[in-house]
């Protein structure tokens, strides 16, 4: 990389970082507006079905829900500037604390799942593209259709039945150890690997039909080297875009997989907070997920010029 290209890369980084900050601020505002318009009164829920309206009013005051919306938002931003995500209404503990406990679980499952998708999916797709044949391509197509169209929770229940109820090999959900990770990872990977294999297969197959591949072959390069160094590298671009967006989505929590396997991650937390109208918690979860989306996009954006020198 020349010094010139290094400068433009740094400029790109700065520009993207600025945009990211603006995006996050926008996310807080929109979430705030949406969340505060949710039907239902968190105070009524906290007070329970038997509470008198007087008690509910007390709680509303205590949670500062009786203040005007702009004031509440300003208050939220000031606290956010001090890296304070506020207190959960329901759990009455700092939102940051709950997220700190849940995030590692989600990171573990999401990253493991993502790597499986990317590695196994790409490998499988590339292999079939490099060694085409009716049987192999048909099998890949079948697997892709099955994988993409089977609901994750159903795969999850099937795995639970087989590995836990039937063979008693693995724990029945929960999180913590590698043994706990296996089933959710399998369930999560099924659809992802199928999809990535399909995409990789198409892009690598198309790349292999290009002129430069014929040229590379003509130069006398081995077939393996052509597939890996030429075809796959060109096919990577769409895969990286896809993987970036998917990683962001995964890090926001995998709701179905988490709930089937009682995996205590961000997805469950998000669903639960919405159901309980736990406003600070919803804001916290959305903000953290948004940070991941922004980060993942940033990384993809910065990777492009490295993968494809034409993009600057």
């Amino acid at each position: 990389m020349t010094s010139d290209s290094r400068v433009s890369w740094a400029a790109l980084l700065l520009r993207r970082l600025g945009g990211a900050a603006g995006t996050l601020l926008g996310v807080t505002l929109v979430t705030f507006l949406v969340v505060y318009r949710l039907p239902g009164d968190p105070a009524a829920l906290l007070a329970g079905p038997r509470a008198d309206p007087e008690v509910i009013a007390n709680i509303r005051r205590e949670l500062k829900l009786d203040q005007p919306l702009p004031l509440q938002y300003a208050d939220y931003l000031v606290r956010l500037a001090h890296l304070d995500l506020g207190q959960s209404y329901v759990r009455r503990e700092p939102v940051a604390e709950v997220i700190r406990r849940r995030l590692p679980q989600t990171l573990q499952l999401a990253l493991a799942g993502w790597l499986c998708w990317l590695l196994f999916g790409t490998a499988l797709g590339t292999w079939v593209a490099a060694r085409p044949g009716r049987w192999r391509e048909g099998a890949l197509l079948g697997f892709s259709i099955l994988g993409v169209s089977t609901p994750t929770f159903w795969v999850g229940l099937l795995l639970l039945y087989l590995f836990v109820t039937r063979w008693k090999l693995l724990p029945a959900g929960g999180s913590g150890t590698l043994r706990h990770l296996l089933l959710p990872l399998l369930a999560l990977s099924f659809a992802g690997v199928a999809y990535y294999a399909r995409v990789a297969h198409t892009t690598v197959r198309d790349a292999l039909a290009q002129d430069y591949v014929r040229t590379a072959r003509a130069k006398g390069l081995s077939f393996g080297s052509v597939v890996c160094r030429h075809a796959l590298r060109n096919a990577l671009l769409p895969l990286v875009t896809l993987a970036g967006a998917d990683l962001a989505a995964l890090l926001g929590g995998v709701v179905f997989t988490e709930s089937v396997f009682d995996w205590k991650g961000m997805g469950q937390l998000a669903v639960e907070s919405v159901a309980l109208v736990d406003l600070p918690m919803i804001l916290g979860v959305v903000l953290v997920s948004a940070i991941f989306v922004v980060l993942a996009n940033l990384i993809v954006d910065l990777l492009y010029p490295l993968l494809d020198p034409r993009i600057r």
Binding site: G40, D41, A43, L45, P49, A275
Partner: peptide, 24 residues
């Protein structure tokens, strides 16, 4: 409606409702 909306609304907005009650 979701529970939170039910709890804050059934007392004043419902014509009739399905509910449960128990003593403390």
């Amino acid at each position: 409606v979701v529970l939170s909306e039910y709890l804050s609304g059934y007392r004043t907005k419902a014509d009739c409702w399905f509910g449960g009650w128990y003593p403390d």
